[in-house]
Simulated assay, not measured.
Amino acid sequence: MLSLFRVFARNPRLLRKLGAAGLLDDASPLPLRQREIVILRTTAHHRCEYEWGVHARVFAKAAGLDEAQLVATRHGTAEAPCWTEQEQALIRVVDELHDEGKLSEEAHSLFVRHWETEQQLEVLALCGFYSTVSFIANTARLAPEPWARCFPDAGEAPSACPCG
């Protein structure tokens, strides 16, 4: 069992409300790749190596994220050349939500141009949910799972944990 779920289990209501799967079901209106970019960027913003590492190990390959893109979720900018135009817009949206708590007119325009309302709400929910997960994991001082990825240094590929 993941360490995070052992923390959730200390509060049965929290476990019921947040659940083990969170927003990781097949009913998501976002493609897996976009969902994972949002989650990785959100957890990186909150310096949550625990959750970033779980997603980098478990979902990155299936989402088609390569090593450079994993590094960019932690250290890159929205303009990094490894992203498509739509992915750059997504990262800008996530970054502004975390930095400002809202979107500038330009980012909002990109958001509504690239995503339907249901998808926009999913992006917002993922940012909020994984912010909460990051707060919990960081406050509980969860060490990375032994099989998870570690935060990469800038310009380096992610390594296997345990991290030092």
Rank of each mutant, 00 (worst) to 15 (best):
A157F: 06
F151M: 05
Q34C: 03
E116D: 09
G64Q: 04
E36G: 11
L32I: 13
G64Y: 00
W52H: 05
T139L: 05
R6L: 03
V133L: 09
A125G: 02
E96G: 10
R74A: 07
V94N: 07
P29V: 13
I39W: 01
A143M: 07
L32S: 14
L14F: 15
G19S: 07
A80I: 10
S159G: 11
I39V: 15
C82R: 05
W147G: 09
C127A: 12
L121D: 09
P144Q: 05
L97A: 07
G164K: 08
K17V: 14
E118G: 04
R33W: 05
S3W: 00
A60K: 00
T84A: 09
A56D: 00
P81Y: 11
A72W: 02
P152G: 05
G155L: 09
V133W: 02
R16A: 14
F59S: 11
A44N: 05
E105M: 09
E96F: 04
P158T: 06
E49Y: 02
R16W: 09
R57C: 03
D99A: 11
H45C: 12
F111S: 04
A140Q: 06
E36N: 12
R35Y: 01
C161K: 11
D26A: 15
A72D: 09
A9S: 07
G128N: 15
V58T: 13
R41T: 14
P158Y: 02
N138W: 08
L70N: 04
L142W: 02
N11I: 07
R47S: 08
A125E: 04
